[in-house]
Amino acid sequence: MPTGKVKWFDADKGFGFLASDDGGEVFLHASALPAGMESVSPGTRMEFGVADGRRGPSALSATVLERTPSVAKNTRMPAQRMAVINEDLIKLLDDISGGLQRGKYPDRAHGKKIATILRTVADNLDV
């Protein structure tokens, strides 16, 4: 079975192209992706069957051989460090909770610290 890498894939349009290892280009429709998979990232290695379509070779029943590594996953903080940051965040949120219940927001400097920590936690969890 031929193999290749995803050149590009547009999930909204439902198709993309594979760069076959033999040098050719193969059309990849969303219906050829594995069940439950709606999109693939550029650079993902795939194995696929090929059929001649109206506009050239088309991939049939493609399977993922290896996924492209996630840059975000490789650069996020270790879990132990995130645990410490989460504990600090809980303490900070606890501190401002009483004031918020009385209708008072924290001062600008304190609010900025909390916002920075919230963004850090969100960035590391959302990969």
Rank of each mutant, 00 (worst) to 15 (best):
A51N: 07
K91G: 08
I90P: 00
G53Y: 00
G98N: 11
P57Q: 03
A59E: 00
G53C: 01
G49W: 02
E66P: 00
T63E: 12
R81E: 15
M82G: 03
G56W: 01
E87N: 12
R76D: 05
V64A: 01
I85K: 07
A79D: 15
L65S: 10
Q80H: 10
Q80C: 08
D94Y: 08
P78L: 07
M77G: 05
N86V: 10
N74L: 11
G56L: 04
S70D: 06
D52R: 06
P78I: 10
D88E: 14
V71G: 09
P69A: 15
G99R: 08
S61L: 03
S61F: 01
L65Q: 14
L100R: 10
M82L: 10
A72M: 06
L60F: 00
T75Y: 05
T75V: 14
S61W: 01
N74C: 11
E87W: 06
S97A: 12
A59C: 02
S70V: 02
K91M: 08
I96R: 04
V84Q: 15
G98A: 15
L89N: 05
A72Q: 07
A62C: 03
Q101L: 14
K73D: 13
G99Q: 08
L92P: 02
L92R: 12
P78R: 07
M82E: 04
K73N: 09
D94F: 06
S58Q: 09
P78G: 08
M82Q: 04
L89K: 03
G53T: 00
T75C: 07
P69T: 11
T68W: 00
S70T: 01
Q101T: 13
K91W: 06
A59L: 01
S70K: 03
S97W: 08
A72D: 07
R67C: 07
M82I: 05
V84M: 15
A83T: 13
I96M: 11
